[in-house]
Design a binder for these strands. Structure first.
Length: 114
DNA sequence: CTGGTGACCGCTT
DNA sequence: AAAGCGGCCACCA
């Protein structure tokens, strides 16, 4: 396992329950904004789906991955909806559910979900 | 070792 | 407005 991938996986694990992040965000958190594509590959070969919530990662437009074939691309949608994430025309409502750094701070302060 | 590919993104025609 | 292209990392032929 490469250090780069470990950092990517750590970033993904940081996404709070009920939130989604973009590949670009994860890439930036992992150290380089240009790794978005690498993030895609890293999740593709996700070594531990149980602890790495790759379904919380969507593309910039809030579209889920077509290649998420763990029982169909619909599975990713199901998992996200289970956490309260709403979809509009098959797209995640990014306005409401995109994870922002401030959110994590606020969630901690409120003793809410983390 | 070289080159091509992929769950992407952003800048450039 | 739509399409192309380079970038970055790991993996396979």
């Amino acid at each position: 396992m490469s250090e780069t991938f470990n950092r990517i996986y750590d970033a993904v694990r940081r996404i709070p329950y009920g939130r989604v992040a973009t590949y670009g965000q994860i890439a930036a958190l992992a150290g380089n904004p240009r790794w978005a594509r690498v993030v895609g590959y890293a999740l593709h070969v996700n070594p531990d789906p149980d602890s790495i919530p790759c379904y919380r990662v969507v593309n910039k437009d809030g579209r889920v991955s077509p290649a998420f074939a763990f029982g169909g691309a619909n599975m990713q949608v199901t998992l996200l909806e289970r956490e309260g994430v709403e979809f509009v025309d098959g797209f995640v409502d990014m306005e409401k559910y995109l994870w922002k750094p401030e959110d994590q701070t606020r969630l901690r302060a409120d003793h809410a979900l983390i």
